[in-house]
Design a protein around this nucleic acid. Structure first.
Lengths: 238, 238
DNA sequence: TAGTGGTCTAGACCACTCC
DNA sequence: GAGTGGTCTAGACCACTAA
């Protein structure tokens, strides 16, 4: 599959940016268009892409400024994928499947999935990076859609990869909610933290291209080892 | 100041979307261009704006689908402003200034501000919504830039409003980090939660248009009353 | 196959920054 | 005033969805 021009251009520009210092200015949009033989529109699409991902900031009348926010970001507007994010930060992710079962629906799951599904597959996973446990995750996926999932694959492939390759379910969007909680005994043991310590609680709902909910996950992260960073751009006036 | 065409168009489209049902399709981009007498580029800019803010989803070959994610979101790519976000959710925000002092720099602040600033103004605020305390915030702003700040205004105006109107400092971008912690005695008392309960810990650094750090804030939120939601769109392949 | 959103071009004018 | 990013136009072709 041939990538679009502006994506290719943004990749070339990332290489260039990696050789530059924070605070330096990129060539102007018109110059970049000339250098790479594309229209200014395409250059702008590539720069939009880089701005959202924390490689540059743009300043009206001045230019595109190199920044390094991308280095410390778990997430910008990209989809969350533990595996991908850890690799991007130069760490070696691993997943251990602690348990799996088929459960009946309950009030909470009904409110989330809204499709009358009666049974769900529950997956309990421990996520580690460079061998250190970071997150304890309980995931729920509808049985009718994913009953043929290969349990053995779950430790080796990402859940979203399995969804796409084996079930043709493409994740379009995820909603996440952040909160905090105290650990229980089981989670404390798995994460190797003291009982009654605080954990970062993340609730994630993922939605496919047809607007159906296909996954709900509750994660508990050790706050001393895993935190979540994001960047907001100011688009509105104050 | 005249707003750009695509912003005006996006506002008109929000009115239209508010009269539609979730799941309905907007007119096609070409039709919208014709209806509103603008180019398709302008329509696309307006739709980009709406997609990022959770009003629509776009599906290649199908159309722009009305969704209501904007209703449950504390944040999309908009800047974080407690006051604005609470109002958007239909709640009445209030701020109580618990304390303020001038402090000397320390190792942590030096690493964050990186400009050799020697003194900082420290503000301790309690943020409430409809009279219920949600967040305990400690903010640090450079003394040399903001020494003339009117302390009395802080309970009445938003900090970012004061920055802009009184100091001509426009916030360009904010970085936030989410973690979790146990409350201490003072915070437990202020938030009216039991000692040793967990709080959502938020660290925020805000940066102005010249790339200078102008504020650093540590917030502790009561997780039973305040959580943080966000949406990620899938731009990459899995 | 018709219609949709996604990408891309060439060109124009405006608003802003910096000298 | 020169150069920059921001907005806008008119038009084209491609890739995808749905009937």
């Amino acid at each position: 599959m041939e990538q679009s021009l502006y994506i290719q251009l943004s990749e070339k520009l990332i290489e260039k940016i990696n050789e530059m210092e924070v605070g330096e200015l990129l060539p102007s949009e018109r110059k970049l268009a000339e250098i790479y033989g594309v229209s200014r529109t395409t250059v702008r699409l590539a720069l939009d892409h880089l701005e959202v991902r924390g490689y540059i900031l743009r300043q009206h009348g001045r230019g595109s400024i190199v920044v390094d926010y991308h280095k410390s970001l778990i997430n910008l507007s990209e989809m969350y994928s533990f595996t991908e994010q850890m690799k991007a930060l130069g760490q070696e992710p691993s997943t251990k499947l602690i348990g799996h079962s088929i459960i009946n629906t309950n009030e909470k799951l009904e409110k989330i999935f809204l499709n009358g599904e009666q049974k769900f597959i529950k997956l309990i996973r421990l996520r580690s990076s460079d061998g250190i446990p970071l997150m304890y995750e309980e995931s729920f996926i509808p049985f009718s859609k994913f009953q043929d999932i290969k349990i053995k694959d779950i430790e080796k492939r990402s859940l979203y990869g399995i969804f796409k390759e084996d079930f043709n379910e493409v994740v379009k969007l995820a909603q996440e909610e952040f909160s905090a909680d105290l650990v229980n005994e089981e989670v404390a043991r798995q994460l190797d933290v003291s009982p009654d310590s605080a954990v970062l609680q993340i609730y994630r709902t993922t939605i496919n291209i047809k607007n159906e909910t296909i996954e709900y996950t509750e994660s508990k992260a050790d706050p001393s080892k895993f935190s979540y960073r994001t960047v907001h751009h100011n688009h509105i006036e104050y």
